[in-house]
Design a protein around this nucleic acid. Structure first.
Length: 494
RNA sequence: GGGCCCGUAGCUCAGCGGUAGAGCAGCGGACUUUUAAUCCGUCGGUCCUGGGUUCGAAUCCCUGCGGGCCUACCA
């Protein structure tokens, strides 16, 4: 009789029957071993030749599979460490307890105690002497063999995805390991980890539209941060020489395979370092993470193998455009000339695009897709980088680099602009663009500008989209696979 | 935002103008070392929504909702 309602009704009925003889939701368990620890225990005890009765364990977990055959049954039980098999026999657990296995369903959690042994096929197994229900689940889990395949359901109900798909668990573990590894890298280098405000009166530090929210008590609108930059720099001003933050930022933009409205940004700032120091650090960081998390500096991704071992390619913005597109920006100093180039190459651009914006469009379409192996691009046009320090010998270019892997930007860094007068001018230029209707132009943050006037040490700053790094390491192509709960439209149950 | 594709049982999927199907899960039965257990029986549907075409629509057409992939911006 199983429509969904009926399946739930059956389980609720079983819950009632369990309640009659005990508590199907006890607060405590008597677990002695995780599934993995139990198996390790069996192996260890076999090695020293212990008797079966000397290796009694209590394991707990969710019932993942059930094979009942008359007066014996096998249950596969899974906990966070892995899976272990249980064997129940009517003559061992008693006929009443054996009959009560009809009250068990896939998805329930149980606790079982008994000696470890191997079946004749060698499977490590607990010969259950006693067992108890820990949780009666009242909804059925996804199909045991194929798991949950429906992509939408996997994102909306991640708990079901994780419960039924090993690959999804693996991605989640790897992603967590990436963050832990990044954190370890910076701690080892004496960077201080900090947390800065998510709610801000101005959302600065990047070119993006912010989310707006409202503070009732203060009676004013606040913005969710779009970057970590401006507050971290204030910490440099305050006297901390090495700081970093790993935090969620929010950008009010479209969602896609590569974009989620909230994502995790890593930013670090190091006083007395310049962008070349930061580039060396980024190289070391990627190797550190790949070695720790992927176990190799050759990272497979689709048809490519990313080589993190060889020195990363280094070129300049201008040279990359020459090499990959045959365009020398010095030969196209004026907007009209550059527009002609873009048209000739069939690169789309907005009518309002400035010279630098148009240049960036050319970069994105003609150059970046070719940068599969790690490649640093140094020295960006000043107009695109309002927070970066100009190169001493060429004021049209700033000391900024981006690192590309798999044709996508992975890191962005610069020698930080610390001249308060110039910073004010550059921010005002951005503010003028904003006033001109550019919703993604940077805002002038007066508090930041004032702070900068107290003096910020020369410093190298870095930003890395953590999900991009997770995608690189896991080999996934969609950001939604590495974000546990990606943004989805409301479902209006139609 | 544009293009292509998808939405059928709790889950995985067939069916693509003529009475809505299978496997898993469930329920009943057999089975005391199985492991996608096996075997027999059985229950289960707003075929995403709303319109249209047709004697007849899960199937063809249109609209809407949700999703995926590619593409455009950002990280």
């Amino acid at each position: 009789m199983p429509s969904e309602e009926e399946l739930i009704a059956q389980r609720l009925e079983k819950r009632e029957r369990l309640l009659a003889t005990g508590d199907p939701y006890p607060a405590r368990t008597a677990r002695t071993h995780t599934a993995a620890a139990a198996i390790a225990e069996l192996e260890a005890s076999e090695a020293v030749g212990l008797e079966r009765t000397e290796r009694i364990v209590t394991v707990t977990g969710r019932i993942a599979a059930q094979r009942v055959m008359g007066k014996a049954a096998f249950l596969d039980v899974r906990d966070g460490s892995g899976r272990v098999q249980l064997h129940l026999r009517a003559d061992t657990v008693g006929s009443d307890a054996f009959q009560r296995i009809d009250l068990l369903d896939l998805g329930d959690f149980i606790e079982a105690t008994g000696p470890l042994f191997r079946t004749r096929t060698g499977e490590p197994t607990v010969a259950v002497a006693t067992y108890a229900v820990l949780v009666k689940a009242v909804r059925p889990p996804p199909e045991k063999w194929h798991g949950l395949q429906d992509v939408e359901a996997r994102y909306r109900q991640r708990h079901l995805d994780l419960m039924s798909n090993e690959r999804s668990r693996e991605i989640a573990r790897t992603s967590a390991a990436v963050v832990a590894s990044v954190r370890r890298f910076f701690h080892e280098r004496d960077f201080m980890e900090v947390e800065t405000p998510v709610l801000q009166s101005e959302a600065g530090g990047a070119a993006a539209r912010p989310f707006v929210t409202h503070h009732n008590a203060l009676g004013r609108d606040l913005f969710l941060r779009i970057s970590l930059e401006l507050h971290l720099k204030r910490l440099l001003i305050g006297g901390f020489d090495r700081v970093f933050e790993i935090g969620r930022v929010f950008r009010n933009e479209g969602v896609s395979t590569r974009h989620n409205p909230e994502f995790t940004l890593l930013e670090s700032y190091e006083a007395y370092a310049d962008y070349h120091d930061v580039a060396r650090m980024v190289e070391a960081l990627l190797r550190h993470v790949a070695a720790e998390v992927a176990g190799s500096l050759q990272v497979p991704h689709g048809e490519h193998v990313i080589d993190l071992e060889a020195p990363f390619a280094r070129t300049t913005y201008r040279q990359a455009l020459i090499d990959h597109a045959g365009i020398d920006l010095r030969e196209h100093r004026d907007l009209d000339s550059l527009r002609a180039v873009a048209r000739a190459r069939h690169v789309a651009f907005e009518a309002t695009a400035s010279w630098a914006t148009l240049l960036d469009a050319l970069m994105s379409t003609l150059v970046e897709p070719h940068l599969v192996q790690p490649t640093f691009i140094f020295d960006y046009p000043t107009e695109l980088s309002p927070l970066a320090k100009r190169k001493a010998d060429d004021p049209e270019v700033v000391e900024r680099f981006e690192l590309f892997v798999l044709g996508r930007e992975l890191a962005n860094a610069y020698s930080e602009l610390n001249d308060p007068v110039e910073q004010r001018e550059r921010m005002q230029a951005q503010a003028a663009k904003a006033a001109g209707g550019d919703e993604e132009a940077e805002v002038a943050d007066e508090d930041f500008l004032e702070a900068l006037e107290y003096g910020m040490p020369p410093a190298g700053g870095l930003g890395i989209g953590i999900e991009r790094l997770m995608m690189l390491v896991t080999g996934e192509h969609s950001i939604r696979e590495v974000i546990l709960f990606p943004a989805m439209r409301d479902r209006t149950d139609s």
